[in-house]
Amino acid sequence: MMETGFRPAPWCRNPHLQTVVAGLLRRPPAVTLTVDTIELADGDFLDVSISTWPAGPGAPVALILAGINGGPESPYVRGIVAAFAACGIRSAVMHYRGLARPNRLPETFHSGRTEDIAAIVAYLAERFPDAPRVAVGYSLGGNMLLKYLGERGDNSALAAAAAVSVPFDLAACAEALRYGLRRGYQRYLLSGLKAMAHAKQANATLPLADIDWSRLTTFASFDDYVTAPLNGFDGAADYYARVSCAPFLSAIQTPTLIAHARDDPFMVPAVIPGQHALSSAIRLELTDHGGHVGFVGGRSPWRPCYWLEQRIPKFMAERLSCPSGR
C-alpha cells in the first residue's frame, strides 16, 4: 500500500467537485470506435467498442470496463482511450449486458458477471492473436475486474490490470449512498438502471410483474426486486456477499494497480482493504483527495489534468515494455 504522487487541483479539492468535474462536466477527447457484436454460448450477445488506432497487428489491447451505467461515451472512458492511443495501446470498451440496448435473455449485467469479461477477453485473443492484453475497470467495472482476476488466478489471460475507485464491499457502499449528499449520486445512478429495466420491459425480456418502481429508491431495494431475482441471487444481501471483490483480492496473480481516494463520496474509508487482504501482485495506491473516478489536477480550471490518464498508461507501459508517451 503506497501513497500516490497525485495532488488535487487547488480549485478542485472537494471530493464532490472532483467527482462531478471528471464524470459530468468534462468535455471528453474525440476518439473513433467501431462496435463489434459477440454471440455468447448462452444465446445472448455482448457489444464491444474497439478503437481504430493504433492499427498495428501487434499493438497491445486494453479492455475497459466502465462504472455503473457507463460505456464508450463516458468522459473518463474516452479520456483513457485517448491516453492509451498516445502510447500505442488499442482500446476495447465493454458494453454491459442489457445496458446500451436490451439483451435477449432476462438476465442483466451486474457487479459480479465475470463470465462476460472472460468472453470478451477470449474474443480479443482471437481477433488480435499477436497482441498482449491488459484491462482497466472503474467503480463497478473495477469490482468486476478484480473478482475476475481473483477467480482466474494465474490464468487471467491478461498481462496487467488496473482498477479505480472500487466498491470493495458492495453492502457497505450501498448503505453509505443512502445518506447526505451521497443520495444525489444514488438517485442519478438508479435512474439509469430503471431506464434499462423499462427498456427490457418494452422489449418483453423483463419477466418481473407488479413492481412499484416509485418505491425502488435505494440500491438495496432495486437489487432486491430486480437484480437479484433476474440473476439467481436470494435478495440483495446474498448478491452483495457473493459478488463483492474483497474476498478475491488475495488470489490475484496478475500485476494489478488499484487507485483509490480516501475521500471517495461513494463509500466509506472502512471498505479500503488492508495490506493483509492483498496479494503480492497488487499495488494499492491511496490519496487523501480524488473523489470517485476523479483525480483532477492542474492549476487552472481551464486546463485540468486527469491524473489517471497519466498513471494508468505508465503502469501498463512498464509491464508491456512499450513507450509510455508520457
Rank of each mutant, 00 (worst) to 15 (best):
S221M: 03
S221Y: 01
D223H: 05
Y225F: 08
V226G: 10
V226C: 09
T227I: 08
T227G: 06
L230G: 07
L230T: 09
N231T: 06
N231L: 11
N231P: 00
G232Q: 04
F233R: 07
G235M: 09
G235F: 07
A236Y: 07
A237K: 10
Y240F: 15
Y240Q: 07
R242M: 06
R242T: 04
V243Y: 02
S244V: 04
C245W: 01
C245F: 05
P247H: 12
P247L: 15
L249C: 06
S250G: 13
S250Q: 10
S250A: 15
A251V: 01
A251G: 03
A251M: 11
Q253I: 02
Q253A: 15
Q253V: 02
T256K: 08
L257A: 11
I258E: 06
A259E: 00
A259N: 01
H260P: 00
A261S: 14
R262G: 06
R262M: 14
D264C: 09
P265M: 13
P265V: 11
P265E: 11
M267P: 00
M267Y: 01
V268C: 06
A270P: 00
V271Y: 01
P273C: 11
P273E: 12
P273Q: 11
G274M: 05
G274S: 13
G274N: 06
Q275I: 12
Q275C: 08
S279P: 00
